[in-house]
Design a protein around this nucleic acid. Sequence first.
DNA 1: CGAAAGCAAGAGCACTGCTCTCTTTGGTCA
DNA 2: TGACCAAAGAGAGCAGTGCTCTTGCTTTCG
Lengths: 235, 235
Amino acid sequence: MDAMDTSTPRARAREQTMRDIVRIGRGHLATEGAAALSLRAVARDLGLVSSAVYRYVASRDELLTLLVVDGYDELGDAVDAALERVDTADFAGRLAAIGRATRAWALAEPATYALLFGSPVPGYEAPAERTTGPGTRVVGRLVEVWEDAWQAGAVDLDDAPLTPRRFSRDLGRIRRELGLSAPDRLVARGLFAWAALFGCLSFEVFGQYGADTLTDPADLFEAHLAALVEAVGLA
Amino acid sequence: MDAMDTSTPRARAREQTMRDIVRIGRGHLATEGAAALSLRAVARDLGLVSSAVYRYVASRDELLTLLVVDGYDELGDAVDAALERVDTADFAGRLAAIGRATRAWALAEPATYALLFGSPVPGYEAPAERTTGPGTRVVGRLVEVWEDAWQAGAVDLDDAPLTPRRFSRDLGRIRRELGLSAPDRLVARGLFAWAALFGCLSFEVFGQYGADTLTDPADLFEAHLAALVEAVGLA
DNA sequence: CGAAAGCAAGAGCACTGCTCTCTTTGGTCA
DNA sequence: TGACCAAAGAGAGCAGTGCTCTTGCTTTCG
């Protein structure tokens, strides 16, 4: 079904063309933006007529999905690579490494970042069965940090249940699904830190801060990281 | 220049048409999204041929600008109205009111929220001279809260300069331009809270959290507000 | 009253996503 | 080797888009 057979020359050529489409699509995504991503333009750059591209990609939306998965993979790889260079017991360092790696990737690939974490593309819904897997890699790494820190007793947060009770139940369900021992407050603070991290990144990538109010935006990001570390009780 | 003369019937008709265009544009923005906003479709709904709309709006980008300004104004009004119902001395309450009002507006107008705080529309740059004014109302209110709280001695943050020195200088410049007495750390935490708030909102509005993992997302937002209050030292 | 300005309409250009048909090419198998 | 079939590419075509230009008509004002 996947036509992943690389034995025949034809299959290899097809795979190469698929890679070219994604590569050119990423280029257009970076220069034109997601909404202006044009299958016809990709076809031109590929030296093909527009209808021929439909032999490889069913629709513009499927091209977007390919780029979404590609982006999640690249980001996930970058985060994993950064985490390998950090001491496992340094929980704040792991959190900072995730943040810095994500920021570096986001600044290098703002268009893909916008595609993954910005406003949803109108009329396009990422198919869950293909994107949730790669899409949850980063938050998964974050959860690992908090869980490890909690089990190591390095988290300065109490384990009292949060109010209202339905909220505590929801958090309990999340805890159960992910197999965590972290208490309500840490799960909630973890969700906060996750959202806050991407809020900081979106502001920077999308230029929500003034244009040149800061000499080096990295300084502000480091301050943000300190606030994040504190928010999850890793101070 | 603005043709705001309401004396002649023609000017009044023109103004009415402009309002209709913004109203219909907002409707399309809500249902189709910013990137799919079509001047031709607006013209159809208006009962005009597409070229006639260009008598009123110079381009699609200018229509976007109208909607941007309209959105900032509406959000600013909502925040101001919410703040009127809060005791001035209740700094955490003011912060929470700003957050809740912004959230309510964002959930009611997700497309406009995406236009203002989501990924930038490719090829469109909001003209600073028309959007910075209304666009800074909310963050201005936030800054007021922190400044008032600092002057009232209600902020639990030290006033040591932050590192590196260039970052402290940048923060000093911001402090001077806004006429603040808040120290480095509070300014930095304020920026963090600002970005974090919109990160939480973007995750909720754009559906970055799982679809139905929470009984009532407002519970999580209240937890986020508590974290924000703590982050700026208003605990 | 007549000139000037404003308004609407329509045609047209270049672009988009996508479908359809047609022809060529490549791989397989008798 | 030759036949056959599926994959790949080409091209035309449909409906939509932003935007420009010209052509008339109407309102306003000197």
